[in-house]
Design a protein around this nucleic acid. Structure first.
Lengths: 332, 332
DNA sequence: AATACAAATGTAACCGGTTACATTCAAATC
DNA sequence: GATTTGAATGTAACCGGTTACATTTGTATT
């Protein structure tokens, strides 16, 4: 493997000149530059980026903490992250944490050990919390599911408003008993969406029935099971609002299995607008989130933080859209 | 940020002793060790991994080239990769290439620039092909969709046998005109599966009808469109074999849209057994691939290559399984 | 021609670890 | 007490770039 000294020798110049030729060609005379470049290609020289990064104390790597990579919504967010990072010359270290806090802390420590410059966390947990850093300008951005008092920039949806909009859609269709399949208990995202759901009920003068709220974990299986519980409860709902499309797909399967029709007997709505939402039968009514934009925004906020450009907005709220398809209909 | 010299000073020893205390504690006297460890925690010392990697010329990073991260099958493969890599102390740099060869080459060059130790490529393209390396023991493993004459270890499925098995299942149900929605033309994976399909037809004495072969690109949309073409062709098939579950889900939607029932009028089968396969309506008959095992195997082969342990099998073929669900039935 | 000044290039310290080799020190052996 | 031996520790080179500072070269000015 050739290094900069070999190239310098070949070109008959000093290592500094080689370095300068590659980093700021304009301050090297054309003749020398040509000689150096010839030597570079002769030696098939590729700078050792480990050395560069070590010296310059920047890796241009970003760590991304993803709760589950197999969730199609996150897959889209990651797509956006990847695209924006590449455009700005950063690489992405993707970490499938499965929500394990020790794993998250482990990956986050890539920053303190200088293997990466910053972290994008897609879940409401601060992996630096225990660290000395704690509240100084963290090299972190929190997106999608956001902490209540984040010590860092955030990108999120107005989940409360989105949930309210979707619930209102169901109420407009005449539904009064609306079940909800929630995300994990501790998630602020779930809390906000439940709040939005309550807002809509209250505005319509419908009393909240706690029995209609079932926990899930965003997977189709949990949607399937939760729907089973809702069908079994007395005074069963005529509509079910699921906090993710994946759960909605599971719920629809369960409803059909009970011999009921969607939306004939029960309306089902999702959240996220993943690709499969429009291929489900019936196609899902859902809230479309701009998944790729989440990723792109998170990257720009993080790079702004890293490069000390903090004039930009620190907390971004992205727009949502109610997409009405065939899985919701008038109350029978 | 504290470094090893600060710790050495604090403990009143040399930097070498600090390094030794952390890397091979047994050759340091207990008293010194205690002093050093105290200094380490006092200074909140974390070794700069960039420096370590630079010096040791190993990054313990693996680059993974994924055609599309939003494909749920790949998501599972990645899960397996991540898990195995972590177990063996490696990090994963995930790259969503979208099949662009320049992007693939770019990411692969992280190896030549020493940002990563090796590459796992999930597509049939050798990103080092142009490089000087070419055929020396490449720090690469090719998995899932595999090159015909790979210069590196591989992990794959016997796609031909799998396609034959699935086609035989359809023939056993009485189908004689079986459509196929293929993957991209150039893919060896597609070629092998078509070969298996032909094997089964030939064994059953059914003539091949080229018009029943439609190209797709593994997405639900392409399955939807291809199914439309198959429905329109005269002598339309009574069964459709799709080379991915995602395409099968698209195809089912199209068939239903034409007012036909699955499997009453037309059977549809997929390939991969993604999570949604069992949540589709009707649930998909498909070939289950051990996706996570692909990832794990690829990682072990790569690390074997990197660490010079080459006694292990160089080409792994993983088992498949025919999963019969509700989307296939007897010929009407 | 002498001086001033800018441009081009060279020299060497530096980043923060690792490790070969040198040195010190204490216990063991004669 | 002198010598041997091995364990513990220290010294400093090294990895491969970058860059502050020094030096050389070339051009413009008087």
């Amino acid at each position: 493997m050739s290094n900069i000294r070999k190239v310098a020798e070949l070109a008959g110049v000093s290592v500094a000149t080689v370095s300068r030729t590659l980093k700021s060609p304009d301050i090297v005379s054309p003749r020398t530059r040509a000689r150096v470049l010839a030597a570079v290609s002769e030696a098939d020289y590729k700078p050792n980026l480990m050395a560069v990064q070590f010296r310059s104390r920047r890796t241009r790597n970003l760590v991304v903490l993803v709760p589950t990579i197999s969730n199609t919504f996150f897959a889209r967010v990651i797509g956006g992250i990847q695209q924006a990072a590449q455009q700005q010359g950063y690489s992405v270290l993707l970490c499938n944490t499965l929500g394990r806090e020790d794993a998250e802390r482990g990956y986050a420590s890539m920053v303190t050990t200088r293997q990466a410059d910053g972290v994008i966390q897609l879940r409401a947990y601060n992996p630096f919390a225990a660290d000395a850093y704690a509240d100084t300008a963290l090299p972190m951005v929190n997106a999608c599911e956001v902490l209540d008092s984040p010590p860092c920039p955030t990108v999120k949806l107005d989940n409360r408003a989105a949930a309210r909009t979707l619930t209102e859609h169901l109420i407009d269709l005449g539904h009064r008993r609306i079940g909800m399949i929630k995300g994990p208990r501790r998630s602020p995202l779930t809390r906000d969406r439940v709040a939005g759901y309550c807002d809509a009920l209250e505005a319509a003068g419908i009393a909240l029935d706690e029995r209609l709220l079932c926990p899930g974990d965003f997977t189709p299986h949990s949607g399937f099971n939760a729907a089973g519980m809702l069908l079994a409860c007395d005074g069963r709902p005529s509509a079910i609002f699921c906090e993710s499309d994946e759960m909605a797909i599971g719920a629809i399967k369960r409803v059909k299995q009970a011999g009921l029709s969607v939306p004939g007997d029960i309306s089902v709505a999702g959240f996220d607008d993943i690709t499969f939402a429009s291929f489900s039968d019936p196609p899902l009514t859902t809230i479309a989130q701009p998944a790729e934009a989440f990723g792109r925004q998170a990257v720009s906020l993080l790079i702004d933080t890293l490069e000390g450009r903090c004039e930009s907005p620190r907390h971004v709220i992205l727009p949502f859209e109610l997409v009405v398809r065939g899985s919701t209909g008038s109350k029978p």
